[in-house]
Amino acid sequence: MNRFRYANATSTESARELVGANGVYLAGGNDLLGLLKESIAEPGILVNLRSVPGLDQIEPGDAKWGLGAGVTVAQIEDHPGLRQAFPGLHEAAAEIASRQIRNVATLGGNLAQHSRCWYYRHRDIYCLKKGGDTCHARDGENKFHSIFSGNPCISPMVSSLAVILTALDATVVVQREGETVTLTMTDLYQRAWDNPTLHHSLDRSDIILRVEIPTRWSRSTYLQVAEKAAFDWATVSCAAAVRVADGRIQEARVVLGSVAPVPYQVAAANRLLQGQTWSDALGGSVAERLLRDATPFAHNGHKVPIARALMQRALRHVS
């Protein structure tokens, strides 16, 4: 850990000024503390966002809900209205880490967290993600790595909330260069698909303000397989959301986590569900399409059957 300064921001504008060229934002700190301790992040200043008023609101609505970036994962887990409106969001929140961590972890921090790749997280390994020229995982220990990637780095995106929020077609309101911009969940991660050094599409000074979730979904769910029953990262996670009317699926999203540098979905696979009623055979076709381009490495081939199983279970549950 290096020496750094610390400042409490009083507004998002002041936060942006404080963070400057070599600062980082601090919210729950779960991800950042690990990066600091391993000297992977060496910021000149930590700018605390928890001191900014108004970022911790949960606002119900008829067309959409708004969740402030500073809302904790535990608040999402515990909120009865959210649980009723978006069961999958509750399920995803409840699977994250441990209760102690969920008590301080924030929505914004969960979405903006860095890769958990054990090469990236190692203090003495310089890898592609850190600006080096090699992804050690490709020919190394890649059991927990991606089966889809648009770039040579194969470290996956592991945010559970990103997976369900992508399925729910949420949007993310971001303060960028003094403007307020709205990104889709796909936008939020798209740059990490191509660029090995990125974890998401946010710039250093961008601040997530809130997440907005449309209420049009009839049902949603989140499932994961992790080696341990609790407090473990998902090997594969899967979220599904459907809008059902007249006994048929009108619209569906199925999204995978921990398999790609982004929450992974395939529009064509989603479309296969449109206008259909559920059957295991339909699920099989969707799985085929969703996993068609998977390119497993020496140690992560198991992610394909796990993804298939989770996807079938998730869709069966919501359809």
């Binding site: 090469y119 390994i125 190394g140 220990e141 029953a229 609790a230 407090f231 473990d232």
Partner: peptide, 25 residues
């Protein structure tokens, strides 16, 4: 304990990736 053939380091030098059973297990 996971060793990396390429770099020679222990890849899981923590209780996040060196997994011990938890209460739920």
């Amino acid at each position: 304990r996971v060793m990396d053939a390429g770099t020679g380091v222990v890849l899981n030098p923590n209780l996040e990736t060196y997994k011990l059973p938890g209460i739920a297990d």
